[in-house]
């Protein structure tokens, strides 16, 4: 059975623009100009119990909007959503008992009261019995190492400490389905690893289904077999992460640092015989070539480039997942 079933889901936001001048303001009173933005554009998605799905995409792709519709916060403009067998916004109060939600950008806990008081209130809100709480939460608290934080008010916690408490709070009722919107945003590597370990653990132990968004692909690599890639509200890839890596480029990447300014047309001109994509690097006069081909091609390209332009540094890398995703964002999926 599918835990999440989404068919043709769409969300549009209307934004009003005001006309200029007094006359414009007067006309605005009667007819207002508005633009419709399709934040989520007819997506379909099916998630089975126990899956860990990475939901990724650029800023503004529509990830948070999707999660808000799946959790019953926003009403969809069109489409069908069934999550845990229910329609999220129709039976909201009953539905939310069966899910856990964490928004990395926003606190779910009470700001001024001690963490354990927040937990105690949530325990009542979710009608969790003492026995359930004891067995389940003890474990959660231990794994997330938040025992020493429990008597502190949330406002006195660091971001990483707070986020671990947020996660624990979302799990008080041990929900079978967990939505995490950027749970690792702004955290250091150690805390990230702790959180990843913890998510793996609850997924293994309770078969908890997890849908998470992140901008850190290491999260996805560590946790998710499946990724869903969203671009301007549309799903452009839904499948295994390793397939994505395989289908895209098994090529190499060469970072050239030139001694003088060089422009893209010039580079494309000299390398037109090779299957190469040029991109401006992070540093001045740095250009990155992604080549889809044999080692031989790579060395030929390097010599051609060096023949035409003086360089100060050159580096040869394998294409990272990060880079693959970036390429997909920039050019759309065509190899896959």
């Amino acid at each position: 059975m599918n835990v999440i079933e989404v068919e043709g889901l769409r969300k549009e936001f209307k934004s009003y623009s005001s006309r200029s001048g007094l006359k414009g303001a007067f006309r605005d009173l009667f007819t207002r100009n508005y633009k419709t933005l399709r934040a989520v554009d007819d997506i379909s998605l099916h998630v089975k119990q126990g899956e860990m799905v990475g939901y990724i995409g650029e800023n503004g792709a529509g990830k948070s909007t999707t999660i808000k519709m799946l959790t019953g916060i926003l009403t969809p403009t069109a489409g069908n959503v069934t999550v845990n067998g229910m329609n999220p916004h129709k039976e909201r109060e009953k539905f939310v008992r069966t899910i856990g939600v964490v928004f990395g950008q926003r606190s779910q806990l009470w700001w001024d009261i001690a963490v354990q008081e927040s937990f105690r209130l949530l325990k009542k809100v979710y009608k969790v019995s003492d026995e359930e709480y004891e067995t389940h939460m003890k474990e959660v608290i231990r794994t997330l190492e938040i025992e020493p934080l429990l008597d502190k008010p949330v406002r006195k916690l660091s971001l990483g400490q707070r986020m671990r408490c947020e996660l624990a709070a979302a799990l008080i009722h041990n929900p079978p389905l967990l939505f995490l919107d950027e749970p690792t945003i702004g955290l250091d590597v150690l805390v990230k690893m702790k959180i990843r370990g913890f998510l793996k653990e609850i997924n293994r132990k309770y078969k908890t289904t997890i849908l998470l968004t992140t901008h850190d692909l290491a999260d996805i690599e560590a946790l998710c077999d499946r990724v869903v890639l969203l671009d301007e509200g549309k799903i452009i890839y839904d499948g295994r992460l390793d397939e994505l890596q395989k289908n895209w480029v098994e090529g190499k990447q060469v970072h050239f640092e030139f001694q003088h300014p060089v422009d893209k047309p010039a580079l494309e001109e000299i390398s037109r015989e090779y299957p190469v994509i040029w991109r401006q690097g992070e540093r001045v006069n740095q250009w990155v070539a992604t080549i889809d081909g044999e080692d031989d091609t790579v060395s030929k390209l390097m010599s051609v480039v060096m023949l035409h332009h003086a360089i100060s540094d050159v580096k040869l890398n394998k294409v990272s997942t990060e880079e693959i995703i970036r390429n997909i964002y920039e050019e759309g999926i065509k190899h896959g």
Binding site: T71, G72, I73, E93, R106, Q108
Partner: peptide, 13 residues
Amino acid sequence: KGEMDRILTRPIH
């Protein structure tokens, strides 16, 4: 401030 998001994820009116 979007605090309503949090309200709407809890099982109380």
